[in-house]
Each structure stands twice: as structure tokens, then as C-alpha cells.
């Protein structure tokens, strides 16, 4: 199917992933791949299930049915259980029989990082602290050693690494500022910086350009392109700004009512009839 990507490592693979809340099928049998070094877009009208897909990958909730693979290894897998056994109305029923669920922190430790649709910085802490906290994921010494300052080497390394990151991302000037005191666009950058501090290989960006003016979103596009190269990332992003999506995504998936309706290059998507219908409605 993806001949051009056949050689590349499959960083993320969502296989027949469904998510059902009560009677609402938010995500139905989604198949999605992100290959190494790619920037993949996930678009769709409001309520199409994009953020749900993110939440499934990052372990906020386990999928109702289906599996997610990271680097070809199983990350989460689930099948309809309990009440869902009868309620489940999605596809691929009965294909999965194993339940493997990981909490978000475990998934972050496996080098998957994310940002949030509505910025979730640690508001009252400084920019530096925000980035420093994300380094905690690498902490090896236990709390007793850490409190008695017997891990100063590790602590120093964490601080240096946080500083280095701020330097790379041009955030040194605002280092001591409280996160919530900064302009919106910059907060988005800081959220990405914080996600990068967990040392991810796969980065999930949930509407990084939301609320940005054309100039800001232009800057953001360059920024995303740059960090992909500098940090060797694969990126999956949800975005509504078509200019951004078409500008930097190599492949795009389109969701509507939880179902995948199209996938392909930006050009293919732009001329896809189903996509146009989903966005503009059908002419009766």
C-alpha cells in the first residue's frame, strides 16, 4: 500500500482501533500509520474523533477494540468487555482477544509525547520549571537519595539539558517568566518544548496552530519542520489550518464521524470528493 514507505520503520500503527463511549462510536476501525521521520496530518470536521485518536494512543483511555503498535511492538490492545460486549457497534469485533492497557506516564516513558488542544502548561510555574519537570521522566535515583541531594550529578544533568533545550528553541529570554504570563503563541511553543524534554521519538501535536494569526502559524510551520530535523522526530498532528496542514504534512488522514474517509498526499486530499463533502456538505 505504501510502496514509497516500505523501507521505513513504522513508528506508529493504529490497527482497527475503535473507541465507543456508551452508545456513541467516537472512533470506528481506524487504521493509521506514521513512518519514521514523517509529518502526518489528521484532519476532519469538529467531533470527527481526532482528539479521541490521540487519547487512545497516549493512554488517556484504552480503545474499546483494536490495537496500537509502537515500533512494531504492541503498545495497547483491547477488546469489548463487560457492558461493551453487547453495546459495541463498531467493526472488527472478535478480532482481538488480549487486553493490554498502559497509563499515560508509561507511554510517555516509551518516548511518545504530546501537546494538548487547550494549552495545559503548568501555569504558575516558570518556563524553565515547566521544561525541567518533563525531565523527571529520566529520574533514576529514588526520592530519599534525591531529597538528600545525593544525586547532584543527575540533577545537574537535568538542569543542563533543560537549559540546552531552551537555548535551541530560543526560549532563554523568557526562562524565568511564569508560563501563564506569556502570549498565547509562545505558550504553544513552550508546550512543544516541554513535550520535547521527555525525549520523544513520536510527537503528537493537537491543533498546534489553533488561534494563531497567519504570521504566527507560518512561524510555527518552520518551527515544526526544524524540530523534526533536530530531534529526529516523527510527528502526527491534528490541525484545522489548511494552510499549515497542506504546507508541512507529507500524508494526511481524514476522519469523519469516527471513520477514516480518505488518506493520501495533500494534493490527493484536496481533490478528494468525499473530503469536500464532509467539509462542505452534500449538494442535494
Amino acid at each position: 500500500m505504501h510502496d514509497n514507505n516500505g523501507m521505513k520503520n513504522n513508528v506508529l500503527k493504529m490497527e482497527n482501533t475503535s473507541m465507543q463511549f456508551g452508545g456513541v462510536l467516537a472512533l470506528n476501525n481506524l487504521n493509521l500509520d506514521v513512518y519514521e521521520g514523517e509529518i502526518v496530518g489528521l484532519i476532519g470536521p469538529n467531533g470527527a474523533g481526532k482528539t479521541t485518536a490521540f487519547n487512545v494512543v497516549t493512554g488517556v483511555y484504552p480503545p474499546t477494540n483494536g490495537a496500537v503498535y509502537l515500533d512494531r511492538e504492541i503498545l495497547v490492545e483491547n477488546y469489548p468487555q463487560g457492558k461493551m460486549k453487547e453495546l459495541y457497534s463498531g467493526e472488527s469485533k472478535g478480532k482481538y482477544t488480549v487486553a493490554k492497557v498502559l497509563t499515560p506516564d508509561r507511554i510517555t516513558k516509551l518516548r511518545v509525547a504530546r501537546t494538548f488542544q487547550n494549552i495545559r502548561l503548568f501555569k504558575d510555574l516558570t518556563v524553565y520549571e515547566n521544561v525541567l519537570i518533563a525531565q523527571h521522566v529520566k529520574q533514576k535515583s529514588n526520592w530519599l537519595f534525591a531529597s538528600l541531594m545525593m544525586n547532584h550529578k543527575e540533577e545537574k544533568a537535568m538542569r543542563e539539558e533543560a537549559m540546552r533545550l531552551l537555548e535551541i528553541l530560543d526560549l532563554v529570554d523568557v526562562k524565568e517568566k511564569t508560563a501563564s504570563s506569556l502570549p498565547y503563541g509562545q505558550q504553544r511553543h513552550i508546550e512543544i518544548a516541554r513535550a520535547l524534554a521527555t525525549d520523544p521519538k513520536l510527537l503528537l501535536l493537537d491543533e498546534p496552530a489553533a488561534g494563531m494569526n497567519p504570521q504566527e502559524s507560518d512561524e510555527l510551520m518552520h518551527f515544526i519542520g526544524r524540530i523534526r530535523k533536530d530531534f529526529g522526530l516523527s510527528i502526527l498532528m491534528i490541525e484545522h489550518h489548511m494552510q499549515v496542514v497542506m504546507g508541512i504534512c507529507e500524508r494526511i488522514y481524514v476522519l469523519d464521524y469516527g471513520k477514516l474517509i480518505a488518506e493520501g498526499s495533500p494534493k490527493e486530499i484536496q481533490s478528494n470528493k468525499k473530503v469536500i463533502e464532509a467539509y462542505l456538505g452534500v449538494d442535494d
Binding site: 506516564d105 501555569k123 518533563a134
Partner: peptide, 13 residues
């Protein structure tokens, strides 16, 4: 500050 974000940063709540 934010439980959801903390967990997403790899902190076991």
C-alpha cells in the same frame, strides 16, 4: 498544576 499534563509528562500520578 495539572494532573492530565503531569501524567502526559511521564509522572506516575
Amino acid at each position: 498544576e495539572d494532573e492530565v499534563a503531569a501524567e502526559a509528562m511521564g509522572i506516575n500520578l
